[in-house]
Design a protein around this nucleic acid. Structure first.
Lengths: 348, 348
DNA sequence: TTGAAAGCGCTAACAA
DNA sequence: TTGTTAGCGCTTTCAA
């Protein structure tokens, strides 16, 4: 059996308080006692029971990370970074997968319960404003990506409008005239923002806005991108470029285009969004918006931490809306590599 | 403040025991009392404090999943499935990332502590036999993939030798004569097994074993595959096929080959291992060994569960070594698609 | 500086 | 059928 504080105290011939003091580095302990306690600690191989400690301290040591699914590369990469950031602050991360359904997103919020976690980071897909009513105020909450407009909740994201405008501006800049967009979705706030940026860029470039070239995607998987692309290719006048609202859609779109016999980027230029690791190695490699994922993870965990502290101090700490930086990675799907192809691998 | 059992009892005018009975569905409760308790439960919005419950029950409600990194597609996909399987048995999953280093793998085992978790599933990369000494027997442990030979620990994996033999047999079957292998690694048991299968297949096909065509990879990222491929292409007589020990290596290898001006599969056929989602959409799509990841996740969680129960019953439950099924997905990287290219997307 | 003891929220043995 | 109560392992007040 694992040793308890009591066992250690008995072995060292002191009280549990003394052992606790040694373990936690509190107060002054008589050198002789300290020595004996440390010895007892070593021989018993004592390890504190975190559950009991947290029960007593009224903190749990956990934060929840609520996301659609870990097997989606963007979320896998984000989760890896969140876990690392959380660990630095002494938190373990509980991951809850929702498949992006409203039901499961809501139940994740309630099921975790306030006892279970010190805070939650969520990347919702379908959650509506009213769903927050029940949960809000129990523990610090921060939204990553999507933003529930009407609820005062901390939020971390890149400037989606600007990012989309940058991506589409790049396509216009390399001379594309019929630029399509894949990923419109009435239920996703970020989709509207990206669409807005797309439109801004077209207008800026003096290109017409053709509704025909905007394709909706209910889900953002590779499959959906391929399907959307096939629709576009069936048009009378197909596009000469396409801006996809995430990398998976772009990968699927490229696949469908190539199956259709098109050359990328000559016949069709493609831009993605997320800069998942996959995008740097795809053939052709994918031009994409690269959000600073570390910055997102760091900011989210930091907000949980600060709001937790702020609550304790009863300070009023205004709702935060943090914008993290991004860049545009220009790769082969928009600008063919001619020379130097043989010598260099894709940039990271 | 969140309501406790006591609050509910007070409100309903009964004892905590009665409330507990209702909450846990134990025993018989007088209908009248049940009604009042349920009402009190609803008005207070009572939610059990899982930490306290587990402290009392002597279980933690957590299992650990120790893996190199969540951003690696195979592990992201596996983690998604493990979490789902664990949830069905009432467990939350704590993910520990080790970057595949022995140090962090070891510390994951000890840091989690026996109090924190009811069991652990690990997918080690560098852990040595002696590292298990300290941890073993504290909680149920199951290894996924790599296998520590000398330690009696439950293990779940596919038949790596057979899988590799199948993959390489396929390459020989389509007429390839100079079949290379990327991924040899003295520290990985699975690498040796896959190499063994590779050799078996060559022998079976009457092909010579050329040491020249076996390339070591310390890491299994896309980058390493590209680098290994460049080495192979620098050989006097380059290979006409390559078997990569995972999909990422294969993706990298394809990239390097294409940059070198080769056509896949005409000049070079490529086979991967893992069937990550990416492999079905890469261009060309990747022929790969497809382990049944659900079966792996399910078996691993099941073993934790059974061994936990077995310990309680003091039954002797022999160490398990479970082999899960796999298939070979034949795709464009070995067999060019000629017709029907236009109509169908890649199969899943 | 250390000890005794209460109590975090819950479960379960025992009593009523 | 329900109530009382001890105690899971820990922290922490209060007293010594």
């Amino acid at each position: 059996m694992a040793a308890t504080l009591k066992d250690v105290a008995a072995l060292a011939g002191v009280s549990v308080k003394t052992v606790s003091n040694v373990v936690n580095g509190y107060g002054f302990v008589k050198p002789e006692n300290r020595r004996r306690v440390e010895e007892a600690l070593a021989t018993t191989g004592y390890r504190p029971h975190l559950g009991a400690r947290n029960l007593r301290r009224g903190r749990t040591g956990f934060i929840a990370l609520v996301l659609p699914e870990l097997s989606i590369p963007y979320f896998g990469e984000l989760a890896a970074l969140v876990i690392t950031a959380a660990q630095r602050r002494g938190w373990n991360v509980l991951i809850e997968q929702t498949q992006g359904t409203r039901d499961r997103e809501r139940s994740a919020l309630t099921a975790m319960g306030p006892h279970m976690i010190d805070g939650a980071i969520l990347s919702p897909q379908a959650l509506a404003t009213e769903d927050f009513a029940a949960f809000h105020r129990e523990v610090p909450l921060v939204m990553v990506g999507e933003h529930a407009v009407d609820v005062p909740i901390d939020h971390v994201a890149i400037d989606n409008v600007l990012a989309a405008r940058t991506a589409v501006g790049h396509l216009a800049g390399i001379g594309r005239r019929r630029i399509a967009a894949i990923g419109q979705n009435p239920h996703r706030g970020t989709a509207s923002l990206r669409l807005e940026g797309y439109r801004d860029a077209l207008t800026e470039a003096g290109l017409p806005l053709l509704d025909d070239l905007v394709v909706t995607a209910m889900e953002y998987h590779r499959h959906d991108g391929a399907e959307a692309m096939r629709h576009l290719l069936a048009r009378q006048e197909p596009p000469d470029a396409v801006f996809c609202f995430n990398d998976l859609l772009a990968i699927g779109a490229m696949r469908a285009a190539v199956e259709h016999g098109l050359r990328i980027p000559e016949d069709l230029a493609v831009v993605g969004f997320d800069n998942t690791e996959e995008s740097a190695y795809s053939i052709p490699s994918l031009t994409t918006i690269a959000p600073d994922k570390s910055a997102i993870a760091e900011a989210a965990v930091d907000l949980i931490s600060r709001r937790g502290t702020a609550a304790a101090e009863d300070a009023t700490f205004p709702v935060q809306d943090i914008q993290t930086p991004f860049t545009l990675k220009i790769r082969e799907s928009t600008v063919a590599r001619t020379t130097q192809l043989r010598r260099r691998g894709p940039e990271a």
